[in-house]
Computed example of a mutant assay.
Amino acid sequence: MGEPASIVTSRRLEWSETDPMGRWHYSAALRFVEHAETSLHERLGIGSEAFSRMPRLNLTVDFLGPLHYAEVARTALAVEHVGRGSLRYAFTIARDRVDLARGTLTIAWFDPGTGRTAPWPEHIRELFTAAGPQEG
C-alpha cells in the first residue's frame, strides 16, 4: 500500500482577501486550502465526481504569522485520516519556509439520494489512502 495523497500548491494573496491593513483576512486561509484541495482532486481524477458531494464538517486553523497583499504562499495539504465516510486533511500554509498557518479540514462523502453522509466509494478511498504525493 502507498502513502496517503498529498499536494503542495502556490498561490498569491489577492487584495479582496486582505483586511484594511493589507494582511490576509482569516477567511483567506480556507481559500488557500480549498485551492490545494481542488488541485489534489483534479490530479487524482475525481474533481467532477467529488466536489458537489464533499461538505465541510470542521475547520481548525492556528494562525502563526501574517501574509500580505500580493505575497505568494505555499500550501501543503495531506490526507491525515480516512474514516468510513469522512476524511481529515492536515495543512500548512508557509512563505519562505516560515509557517503562517496550520490546521485541519474535515470533510464527508454525501449521498444526494438520502441527504446523508455515506461510506466512501472504494476507488476514492483507495486514491486518498494510497496515491501518494501529487504534482502541484
Rank of each mutant, 00 (worst) to 15 (best):
P4Q: 07
P4C: 00
S6C: 13
I7A: 09
V8P: 01
V8N: 01
T9D: 10
T9Q: 12
T9F: 07
S10C: 14
E14Y: 08
E14D: 04
S16H: 13
S16L: 02
E17R: 00
P20Y: 00
M21D: 01
G22F: 00
G22Y: 01
R23C: 03
W24N: 02
Y26Q: 10
A28V: 09
F32Q: 12
E34H: 11
E34M: 04
H35R: 08
A36E: 11
E37R: 15
T38G: 08
L40H: 10
L40D: 09
H41I: 13
H41S: 11
L44C: 08
L44K: 03
I46L: 10
G47W: 15
F51A: 11
S52F: 12
R53K: 11
M54P: 01
P55S: 02
L57S: 01
L57G: 10
L57A: 06
V61W: 07
V61A: 05
D62F: 02
F63M: 10
G65I: 15
H68L: 02
H68P: 00
Y69K: 04
Y69P: 00
A70F: 03
A70G: 04
E71G: 10
E71W: 01
V72Y: 08
T75F: 01
T75A: 07
A78S: 12
V79H: 08
H81P: 02
H81M: 07
H81I: 10
V82W: 00
G83P: 03
G85L: 12
S86K: 07
S86I: 11
S86V: 13
L87Y: 06
A90V: 14
A90L: 14
A90N: 07
T92D: 12
I93E: 04
I93K: 03
A94V: 09
R95N: 04
D96M: 10
R97H: 10
A101F: 04
T104A: 15
L105T: 02
T106L: 07
I107D: 03
I107F: 01
A108W: 09
W109F: 09
F110Q: 02
P112W: 09
P112F: 05
T114Y: 05
G115S: 12
G115A: 04
T117P: 02
T117E: 03
T117N: 13
P119T: 14
P121R: 11
E122I: 15
H123P: 14
H123G: 03
H123E: 15
I124H: 11
L127W: 05
F128M: 14
A130N: 13
A130G: 14
A130F: 13
G132P: 10
P133T: 08
Q134W: 08
Q134I: 11
E135P: 06
G136F: 03
